[in-house]
Computed example of a mutant assay.
Amino acid sequence: MSASFASALIAARESAASQHYPQGALYVVATPIGNLADISLRALHVLHIADVVACEDTRHTQALLRAYGIDKSTAQLLAVHQHNEAEAAQQVVERLQRGERVAYASDAGTPAVSDPGSRLVAAAHGAGLRVVPLPGASSVTAILSVAGALGEGSGFVFAGFLPAKSGERDAAVALLAQESRATVLLEAPHRIEALAQSLAALGERLVTIGRELTKQFEQVATLPCAGFAQWLAADPQRSRGEFALVVHASPVAQVVGEGERVLAVLMKELPVKSAVKLASQISGESRNELYDAALRMKKAMGEGGSN
Rank of each mutant, 00 (worst) to 15 (best):
Q281P: 02
K277A: 05
V53E: 08
E212F: 01
G210Q: 08
R181P: 10
H125F: 13
G153H: 07
Q197F: 09
G257F: 01
L185F: 06
V276T: 01
L162Y: 02
A194D: 13
L9F: 01
S306A: 12
L120D: 15
Q254I: 08
A233N: 06
G126Q: 12
L78P: 05
G304Q: 04
Q62L: 08
S15N: 09
S106E: 06
V132E: 15
A294R: 00
S145W: 12
E269M: 05
E260F: 02
V157F: 13
Q197M: 09
A86M: 12
P189C: 01
S106C: 09
G210Y: 03
A172Y: 02
L129C: 10
G304M: 03
S7H: 08
G34C: 06
A221M: 15
I192T: 14
S283T: 00
T31W: 02
L41G: 06
E303M: 15
G109D: 10
R211V: 09
L290M: 00
E168C: 11
E187N: 07
A86G: 08
A112I: 04
T61R: 07
S114A: 12
S15I: 15
Q281C: 02
L36K: 03
S239N: 11
V246R: 00
R42E: 11
L26S: 05
S180D: 14
M301D: 15
G304V: 10
L199S: 13
V220I: 11
S286I: 01
L175S: 11
A253R: 01
N288M: 09
P224C: 10
L44I: 08
T74Q: 15
K299Q: 13
L186G: 10
S114I: 14
F156T: 15
E85C: 02
A233F: 04
K277H: 02
A30D: 04
A293Y: 00
I10G: 14
A112Y: 10
S280Y: 00
L65G: 01
V52R: 11
S250G: 15
D170R: 10
A127M: 12
A194M: 12
H45M: 11
E269G: 05
S274K: 09
V173E: 02
Q90L: 03
R13D: 08
G126I: 10
V184F: 12
A200D: 11
R240P: 05
I10C: 09
V131W: 03
L41D: 03
G155I: 14
G128L: 03
P224L: 10
E303Y: 10
R66H: 11
K215H: 07
R101E: 05
R13Q: 04
L185V: 09
I282Y: 02
S283D: 00
V173F: 03
E85K: 00
V46C: 08
A164M: 10
A172R: 02
L266P: 03
N307G: 13
V220W: 09
E14T: 04
E14M: 01
L47A: 04
A201R: 12
R296N: 06
S280W: 00
A171K: 13
P224H: 15
L65H: 01
G24C: 04
V132P: 13
F217K: 06
G160H: 05
F161P: 09
L202R: 04
S166L: 15
A201E: 12
R191H: 12
